[in-house]
């Protein structure tokens, strides 16, 4: 498992072998390995990577002291964001190593983790694609969700019933996106398909977890 932190830039079209692909462009890395986690100390194996270097002045302002000390003891410059990537081959990395987008190659499949766009408290039609009712012809049933269960048997509403509620602003993973373009010089990676979140939102790009047949 390898991964890198980035920000979503937006979408565009690229042509490859005469075919058009809708791609999401992500500005990812460079990331610095800030800590190695080993099973004997931390109960699991992972590397911790830091993204978006801060100037010292800025770091003092927005980071708390424990975090500043952590960077200091690791011997790297303070960064805005820290994320962990579970990996079994921790030995391949050293604290202070710089990861760039060229850890991925074109044609590879990746998973992209991000936070979906927040839609607030949404009704069942938007949130669960319920049908709703007619808008006119004397209808009194418009955007409601209808029946939510039986009567005296079972005298309750089943857990997980699709109802209105908070929609979006939630961690989402899109699996098996193909990498179509890697530019290590500009720290740019383009994947085939959409990814969660608005432009400028934080993303974690990592190698695919499940192989697709």
């Amino acid at each position: 498992m390898k991964g890198i932190i980035g920000r979503k830039l937006g979408m565009t079209t690229i042509y490859k072998d005469g075919k058009a692909f809708g791609v999401t462009v992500i500005k990812a890395g460079p990331c610095v390995v800030s800590q190695k986690k080993l099973e004997k100390n931390d109960e699991y194996n992972a590397i911790q990577i830091a993204f978006e270097e801060l100037t010292e002045q800025r770091a003092k302002k927005i980071l708390k002291k424990p975090l500043l000390k952590k960077y200091e003891s690791a011997g790297i410059k303070p960064h805005r964001i820290i994320k962990e990537i579970r990996t079994e081959d921790v030995d391949k990395y050293n604290v202070g190593d710089v990861l760039k987008v060229d850890i991925f190659s074109e044609g590879e499949k990746v998973d992209v983790v991000g936070t979906s766009k927040g839609r607030g408290f949404s009704g069942a039609m938007k949130r669960w694609n319920f049908g709703g009712g007619e808008a006119s012809h004397g209808a009194k049933f418009h955007r409601e969700l209808g029946s939510i269960g039986n009567s005296s048997q079972p005298s309750k509403i089943w857990k997980g019933k699709k109802m209105p509620g908070q929609y979006g602003n939630k961690r989402k993973t899109v699996q098996n996106l193909q990498v179509l373009k890697v530019d290590a010089e500009k720290n740019i990676i383009a994947v085939y398909g959409g990814v969660p979140g608005a432009r400028g939102s934080l993303l974690l790009v990592r190698s695919q977890k499940k192989l697709r047949k």
Binding site: L9, V25, K186
Partner: peptide
């Protein structure tokens, strides 16, 4: 931000 996308698009101009 947009400059990177434009740079990619310019390849296909």
């Amino acid at each position: 931000m947009d400059q990177y996308i434009r740079a990619i698009e310019s390849e296909f101009a």
